[in-house]
Amino acid sequence: MTSGLDVRGITHRYGKKTALNDIGFSLDKGLFCALLGPNGAGKSTLFSILTRLFVPDAGEVMVDGHSLAREPGKALARIGVVFQQPTLDLDLTVRRNLKYFAALHGLAGKDADRRIETSLEQVNMAERAAEKVRALNGGHRRRMEIARALLHGPAVLLLDEPTVGLDAETRSSITGHVHNLASEQGLTVLWATHLVDEVRGSDHLVVLHRGKIHANGNAAEIAGDVSLQTRFLEMTGGGK
């Protein structure tokens, strides 16, 4: 079986500074993987590479069996992304925003409308479709971005610190929702965060620190007999 996301030997430098050093991990379909790392660990660089914003100095990314370098169109069509920064047009309605995105994936007409309805229902936002994004609160905007990322039916969902700036209740509801997407719909999820409490024991966990992988496996097994928080601080030198 091809894995959902296969990252092989990614190395990337900014001038002399090595941002990512031989990063490799493979995620099966339906797996929720938390990419945990303190600020500056290289998470955003990795996301930029996974979304082909730029090409790494070395290594390869396979998305649902397609190489991002050799078949960028096919690979990108299989990816849904939620960026750390909100990327919505505030003065357009929810539906207009989603239509624009659908068109960027070559979807239009009834097919696009149907997908928009379905994805909004999934995040319980069907009744907000005609509202301007400016009128939505942070939590709803994030939900909408998740709905948007799923419009074109991707196999892999990438989320770059999606809960930044949200209150505890919204955070937990969004984390729960995305966990369900992985377990119920077979989506491969890569969830970047620096917050340990968003990681569940059953999740797959990749710990990134200073551009290197420090742990890669089941979260509960990595934590062992101490809490994940303690283990994480040990690995990253207590945040120093």
């Binding site: 992304v81 960026f83 990327t87 960027l104 994936h105």
Partner: peptide, 18 residues
């Protein structure tokens, strides 16, 4: 700066066409 360029560039449509 606002990130919507990123959104555009992650489209599977060839970048030169975008």
């Amino acid at each position: 700066e606002m990130g919507s360029m990123r959104l555009l560039l992650t489209s599977p449509i060839p970048r030169w066409w975008l």
